[in-house]
């Protein structure tokens, strides 16, 4: 315990760099950018950022356009998904209101469930994945390479039978621990954690590799234990990728349908993907408008998480620290 001091010095040093670069940025922008926009010759502006806006505009149109249909459908109660004539021909919030007024289809509960399951599974995946990535990146052991490849190979197995297999498995678990078996959100989260080691581990592994081992070694010499090094030194350094993986796992669990639909029976416990699908699964009673409204609101979750995490994703912390 006495070894905290050197370690924390190192972290403090870290923070100084980060703060330093942030300060640098802050100074650079207010002073240089705004007036520069006016004064900077157009040619220079164009070469530096202008063309990027053009690319951005193109991407915005490409990204958003199909979604405009979804938004339009959500505002047109009783309407269809694809409108041939005109978008936003009718605008009403009826579908959004209806979404929250269906006792058999408790949208609000689905939303909270999804939030809970998504965030928990995402946090769990990040933790489990980071632990494994750290081992793969920093330690040398028998089967390391094979293990790395196997992780990805396992994910390649065609999941045609996943539904049947997972149901049988969870039924077995139910026999022993009903609380984490069928119809339990914890059970579902555990299944999602089954995929925590996989592609995302690789992503983190690659990122861990870019953090020089000299940092670990310095910490070792200062007397920090492996757990301390991992949690307090390495993890902060790789926060961009942790944030990316968190977001990827969240989106994955958000859109996962097959397993959630098998495991969660009680409407009060279901997720958005499962619940919303009910509005359109039956060809003879499709309600695209309500479904679209639900999807629009559901998109708030990943977008909000992205907003929260954006500064980690693009912070470039390591950039300052490595050299």
């Amino acid at each position: 315990m006495a070894v905290t001091a050197p370690g924390s010095t190192l972290i403090a040093g870290e923070q100084t760099t980060a703060v330093g670069s942030a300060r640098l940025r802050r100074q650079r922008y207010p002073r240089a950018e705004k007036p520069a926009l006016a004064r900077r010759p157009f040619k220079k502006w164009w070469r530096e950022t202008g063309w990027r806006h053009l690319v951005g505009a193109g991407v915005v149109v490409f990204s958003v356009f199909p979604l405009v249909y979804v938004l339009s459908a959500s505002l047109n109660p009783g309407g269809t998904l694809i409108s041939a004539n005109s978008l936003f021909s009718r605008v009403s919030l009826g579908s959004y209101v209806e979404l929250f007024n269906r006792p058999q289809q408790p949208y609000a509960a689905w939303f909270l469930n999804t939030l809970f399951i998504g965030l928990t599974a995402s946090a769990g995946s990040v933790l489990l994945g980071a632990l494994a990535a750290y081992a793969f990146s920093r330690m040398r052991f028998t089967g390391r390479r094979v293990g790395l490849i196997t992780l990805v190979l396992v994910q390649m197995f065609p999941q045609l039978l996943a539904m049947v297999a997972i149901f049988l498995l969870m039924m077995g678990i139910s026999e022993v621990f009903p609380a984490i078996g069928l119809n339990s959100q914890i059970g579902l989260i555990m299944v999602y954690l089954g995929g925590a080691l996989g592609v995302n581990t690789y992503l983190m592994y690659g990122f861990f590799n870019t953090v020089p081992t000299s940092i670990d070694e310095a910490a070792h010499i200062d007397g920090a234990g492996h757990a301390r090094i991992f949690f307090t030194i390495i993890l902060p350094l790789v926060s961009p990728i942790l944030a990316v993986v968190a977001l990827l796992s969240l989106v994955a669990s958000l859109s996962e349908f097959v397993i959630a639909s098998v495991l969660l029976r009680d409407p009060e416990r279901q997720t958005l993907a499962v619940g919303l699908f009910q509005f359109i699964s039956q060809e003879t009673s499709q309600n695209w408008s309500v479904f679209a409204a639900g999807a629009v609101l559901a998109a708030v979750i990943p977008v909000a998480l992205f907003l929260l995490l954006q500064r980690y994703i693009v912070s470039g912390l390591t950039a300052g620290s490595v050299k």
Binding site: L182, S261, R265, S281
Partner: peptide, 21 residues
């Protein structure tokens, strides 16, 4: 009453009845 998605009922029923669940 267990609420199920109508479109899912057939396949779920086929795979779950033999398990006793």
């Amino acid at each position: 009453l267990v609420q199920q998605d109508f479109a899912e009922v057939r396949d779920q029923f086929v795979s779950q009845v033999p398990t006793g669940e």
